Structures are given as C-alpha cells and as structure tokens.
Amino acid sequence: MAGRGRASGSGAVALVLLLVCLVGCGGKPAATTDRKDLQRVLDRRASAVLDRDRTAFLRTGALSWFENLRGVPLASWSYRVTALHQSGDTTATADVELRYQVQGYDKAPVTAGRTLTLSREQDGQWYVDAETPAEKSAQQLWDQGEVAVVRGAHSLVLGVGQTSEALHRYADLADRAVPAVTGAWGPDWVGHVVVLVPKSLDGMAGLLGSPASSYRGIAAVTTGEVGGAPNAPADRVIVNPDAYAVLGALGKQVVLTHETTHVATRAHTSAATPLWLSEGYADWVGYRGTGRTPDQAAPELARAVADDEVPQALPTDRDFGFSGDATKLAQAYEGGWLACRMIAGKWGEAKLGEFYRAVGDHRTRAGSVEGALKKVLGTTPEEFTEAWREYLRDQLG
C-alpha cells in the first residue's frame, strides 16, 4: 500500500509539471488563443465589408480603405490568418490571406496577401490599425483611392482618379472587344471582361507589384493564371492611362481587343505556349477586320525586310521583354502577328484556333509547337519557319 501511495504522489507531481510546461513554456496556448481571437475579429470585418456596414467595420479597426470599396459589387470577402507576430502584450502584426469575388465576374476567389498592424484594446480584443498589401504582393485598386464603377454590356470597368466619361469610353471599347474576340476564338470562354483603370502609370505598377519602369510605354496588360481551370478567377485587364492616352481610336480598340483575347484564351495558354503564339494570336484578333495592312501594322519588320535583314527564326520569349530594346520588342510582336496571320490565310482561321489550343494543351514546352505543327497543320518547324520568312518578304517587301 505504501508503495502504491508513493507512485500516486509522483504521478501528481509529474502532472503538475506537465501543466506548468504547457501553460508557461513558449506561450503556445496563449498564441493560439490570440490567433483564434484575431480570426474572429477578421470574420466580423469581412461581414462588415459585404454588408457595407461602416459601424461594424469600425468596431474591428480603422476605417482605412473601407469607403473606397463602396461601389465595387462583391459576391464574397474573407480573411485567413496565416501568421501572428506579437511584439508585446498589446501590439502585433499579422500575415493574412484575403479572398474575394466580384459579383457576376469571378467564378472563384481572387487571393491577395495582406499585412495587418494590430493593437489590443482594453477589453482584450485585437484592433486593426492598418491593412496593407503584404511584402512583394500587389496593391488592390481600392488601396489607391475611391473606386468608381461603370457597367457595360460585356464589361465591368473599375477606376481610380478617372472621370465617369473616361470610364464609359473604356467600357464602350471593351464591349466592342468581347464580341470581336468571340467571333475569332469562339464562345468557349466567360464572354466578359474586368478592366482596371488606375490614375497613372505608378498606379498600374502598384496593381502589378512591379516597378513602373517595367511598364512605361505599355498601354495595358492582362493578369491571370495561365492554363487556368474553368473555375479560375477572371483575369483583369490593367490599363496604363499614360500610354493609353496617346493612342488613336484604332490603337485603343486594338489594345483592348488584344488584352480581351488573353482573357478568352487563358484556359488554353500554358507554359507550353511560346509568346510569339500567345501575343501574335492576340494581335491577330486585335487587327482582324480593321483593314490594317502588314506595312501599317508591322513597320519595324518592314524596315528590316527592306534592309535585307529578314529574321532567321521566330521570336523567342526573351525578345518580348518589356525592359529590352524597343525595336526588338516591336519586331517580336509583329513577327508573332504575321505568323498567326499566315496560318489563318494559308490553313484557315479555324485551324489557327485549333493550333493554338493544341500547343497550349501540351504538357510541356518541349515538343508542343512541333507536335501541333505536325498534327494540325501537317508541317515541320523547319518548313514553317521558312514559310514564315518567305511570307515576311512577300507581305513587307
């Protein structure tokens, strides 16, 4: 009996020590509780955003960008805490994943990394002092100012620092682009487009999370996941208003149609797709039906052909670098466009679309173009390249 009594006492001491360690060693339970408390605050914050409830939002933190988002149609908005970094009993920062959907346009949530600066109130609740893009993450449009919204027949245009008239002009261009793209590519896509128009080039760069110098002179870009599944978030066409403003009426339409083509073809664009094909096809759709001749649409290559400097090969992906030589970049786009124009003229527009899909649906870059050339067009890379070079001489000579 005595032995059993001593064993019982040792067990009680061990249990007490274990409890002390669990509560005091490293503070894990407290950290876990804090993280759960923060998640509950952010759940209420998300509900306030969806309900447009300013008072409820203020209970979770500073007003910040809340009013800027007022006009944006939202189908969902949620936060997920991924890390909590406490710097004291009453201050902390948190890494958070924001997920949201634009009503009627996004089939799945768009994801954005956010950083929260936090303080703890007297009642123990976390309070969001600031919410900003995470390091190396892009801004959201409402981080830049109040978002104005214009709905088109096939488009949603969101702008900051733009007049209503300007945004309606973008919507008109996008509404013409969508049926033009469908006429070329077919109905196998969402059939609408979201256009973001920031105030300036710097705003565009912020939305892309890149230096402004990377996009100087670029009128617009399209963001999105290449090879995206059918339920992937809708792409965003992001405009550089500084460069876009200097374009003529035709140029503005070609650019919007080009970028809308990227939205339509995204599910069949993958790492297997060379840029001469993805950019060339987008330009082909953009110029389709405009009456622009090769000499007019490909002036840099026309000059090269006139100087007997016909390219030896199709443009490489590196040739499309925005920060490289401007003439080389222009020739890359023009060369891709003329390659697609040649396919459409020699094999037919339907075959061009079939070729594009066959290349993008290949598992890897290696063999993608070769296989599609053989299967769809009945030719080889060598024969195709020589035909393209001859086409340049014929069309631009």
Rank of each mutant, 00 (worst) to 15 (best):
L314V: 14
L118C: 12
N240M: 09
G124E: 06
G336Y: 01
W126D: 01
A332C: 14
G161K: 02
D188H: 03
T380S: 13
T55A: 13
A302F: 03
A229K: 12
T293N: 10
A12Q: 09
K107D: 06
R80Q: 15
V147G: 12
G145R: 02
A134M: 11
G27C: 07
L250N: 12
A153Q: 03
E370V: 07
R389Q: 15
R45S: 03
G61P: 10
R169K: 14
V246F: 05
G367N: 12
R151D: 15
D283P: 10
I343L: 05
Q139R: 07
V157M: 02
V23H: 13
A302Y: 01
A180H: 14
V49P: 14
A7E: 14
R357A: 11
A184L: 01
L396C: 14
D123K: 04
A153E: 05
G353V: 02
G27F: 07
D43N: 01
L208I: 05
D172C: 10
G228I: 00
T90Q: 14
T32G: 06
G224A: 13
L247C: 13
W276K: 04
E354L: 04
D394Q: 10
D307Y: 09
P274W: 01
T327Y: 10
M342D: 08
D283F: 00
A2V: 11
Q103I: 09
G186R: 01
D188L: 00
G217F: 01
A12G: 07
T269I: 02
L377A: 11
V16R: 12
P381S: 03
L377N: 10
F355G: 00
P311M: 00
Q144H: 11
V81P: 13
V147F: 09
G353D: 05
P241A: 02
W126R: 01
V181T: 05
S64A: 05
Y281E: 08
R120H: 10
T364Y: 04
G5E: 04
G280N: 06
T265N: 06
G378V: 05
D172R: 15
D123Y: 08
L74H: 10
G88T: 13
V16K: 08
D95W: 03
R266M: 03
F355V: 01
Q39G: 00
R70V: 08
L256A: 11
W284C: 01
E165S: 07
G124C: 06
G397M: 03
P109R: 05
R389T: 08
V305N: 02
A313R: 15
T90K: 13
Q140H: 07
T115Y: 01
F320C: 14
V20W: 07
S8T: 11
V96A: 11
G248D: 15
